[in-house]
Design a protein around this nucleic acid. Structure first.
Lengths: 154, 154
DNA sequence: CTTGCTGCAAAAGTTTTGCACACGT
DNA sequence: ACGTGTGCAAAACTTTTGCAGCAAG
């Protein structure tokens, strides 16, 4: 469903390096390590999660640097934001990803991903109506999972 | 497009009172004032915005109470969260509202609302596939507004 | 070398919470 | 009266920023 790290690692790393060069920024050890961690991700991840992993792996990359690098990864189009929660930021790799929506349980916060190719046409239609240039879309469904419903009934 | 305060005020106030009674909670002056402010809203609003308005209107309703009341309004189904930004919460009145999506400019943060009735069927389909009970959905498009594109080209 | 980058710790912004007192029911 | 609600200020949490030293191009 998702291309794995091996196939994505090299091209995305190049894309990031080109992005940095174009902006007059530098490809540092820390940025390499952070990108590497990000590319190992298979779904949605958070900033704090990356910080933990890097610390556990013995890599020096401070919280500040992780946040600063995530901004660049966003701007370069390598990752994109997924708004699931209004107090924490969630991200996912954008490259090579088919558009997906998220079904989230209001009780357990379990998140299920599903494809939403059919929404591209809707996005383009709405954008055209307002003179916007379409960039991306998100479709999130809130519902109650079977597990949560069982608890509710009890 | 949106029912105005006069027509909604009474029924929604009753709904909220019934909700509170059912939960063993009280309908206080502060909750009445906050609900009143919320019902005057015509679109998306934020917690801080409500706090300001209440202070300006000379009403005593602390920030803490506003946040606590918003939780109850959410739980009662009178308002719903609109995720546009991962650092601030946005809300809108849920009752009597046709499902809408939001088109947001990545540069100017202008937000345009559009109807999305056609997505109800998709929501139900996805929920059925996963045994979920559908509650609500959100569709957000990120794009670049005509105004922002003009700046970009310059 | 020059310019940008990092880590730290402090700051900032939003939301939550503990506590003593006040208020609905 | 009882149990809940309120205001205040402090705490909690995520994210941002200033600064002095460090490193990439």
């Amino acid at each position: 469903m998702q291309a794995n790290a091996d196939t994505m690692m090299m091209p995305l790393c190049s894309i990031f390096r080109r992005f940095l060069k174009r902006k007059g920024l530098k490809f540092t050890t820390e940025r390499a390590v952070i990108l590497d961690s990000v590319l190992r991700k298979d779904g949605i991840f958070e900033a704090e999660e990356l910080c933990e992993e890097l610390k556990d792996a013995g890599h020096s990359a401070s919280k500040a640097t992780v946040y600063r690098t995530l901004k660049h990864l966003l701007e370069s189009g390598i990752i994109q934001e997924v708004l699931l929660d209004s107090t924490r930021s969630h991200y996912q790799i954008a490259f090579g990803r088919k558009p997906t929506g998220h079904l989230m349980c209001v009780e357990t916060h379990q998140v299920i991903e599903f494809p939403t190719e059919e929404l591209n046409a809707l996005m383009r239609k709405i954008c055209k109506e307002h003179g916007y240039e379409p960039l991306s879309h998100r479709f999130v469904i809130h519902g109650m999972s079977p597990a949560a419903r069982k608890v509710e009934e009890a």
